[in-house]
Design a binder for these strands. Structure first.
Lengths: 156, 156
DNA sequence: TTGTCTGCAAATTCTTTGCAAGTTT
DNA sequence: AAACTTGCAAAGAATTTGCAGACAA
């Protein structure tokens, strides 16, 4: 694997301490650096799994007792808008019912958030030959293809 | 394709009118048949896409003006518990942040709802040779492997 | 009948907003 | 100083719950 100039920059970033790194990230994203944001960012990066805002809030409170849940929400949204983190689920805010009985997957537009079904046969999945980690018994697969729908592409 | 005895049953079910079909489904699932449930079931089956409870409620109100939103919620949950329909998203009730910067997919346990990451390299995806429906521009894939985790398998 | 649903209203949970005071640039 | 961010409290949205009367088996 060839090492390009970009990789030197990458290595520098990795070696930088967290605060520096965060400063750089914020600069690139056009975000103001604040202590709250730094601690929330560090906390998110350190928490394994898929933390909820409440969990992040609880953790951050250890460092900044005066932090408010509202700030955690605002900051998480800010980070997501700047692509620093993603949300785990589509439609997290409201329940949606899957009414298509056919095996299918989803085309999810990241601009307008629309979800279109695509026949399961159109996507071929291949799992590893052995077992899945920790003896997980797979039953079915749900694939979300993330991208931009035709309408949103036309609109620029 | 050989036609077994099960297929005769299947054909009968298909030919049955909706009310009969619903009665059979309820019997199999051990659910009481009510008019509200029948109309909600028909509505769900007829609505394309991924309707929210509010949308279902609005539709059903046309047939049963006295229906309440609470009943719609209760019934949708009932149907989901009986596997008549699925939910589109995991974690629909609260925001979850994806903190793993590595490309990865999810192992989702349908019993305990836990979500475990699996390296993206472990799953091979193949898309159709042509374009995706309607000129959708794919950027990345998110795969949820649904099944039962090791812990829940042990517990029976 | 007997147990199970339904509709209503109140309660909860999750998230957003307005604004004054505090920080960052 | 100007612009932006924070914390608080109140508002809002989405969903659940308790319960009395209505319905299904």
């Amino acid at each position: 694997m060839p090492v390009g100039n970009n990789n030197y920059l990458l290595i520098e970033i990795i070696l930088m301490e967290a605060a520096e790194k965060f400063r750089l990230i914020c600069e690139k994203a056009g975000l103001t650096v604040t202590h709250q944001r730094f601690v929330i960012w560090e906390t998110l990066a350190s928490l394994p799994g898929h933390p909820s805002p409440e969990e992040v809030y609880a953790r951050v409170k250890g460092e900044i007792p005066s932090i408010s849940l509202a700030t955690v929400y605002k900051t998480i949204h800010l980070f997501m808008d700047s692509d620093l983190f993603h949300e785990v689920s589509l439609h997290h805010g409201s329940m949606r019912v899957e009414t298509n009985p056919q095996p299918h997957h989803h085309l999810v537009c990241r601009v307008c958030k629309s979800i279109t079904d695509i026949d399961a046969g159109q996507i071929e999945l291949r799992m590893p030959p052995g077992e899945l980690p920790g003896g997980f018994a797979a039953e079915r697969y749900a694939v979300d293809v993330l991208g931009v729908c035709a309408d949103c592409r036309k609109r620029g």
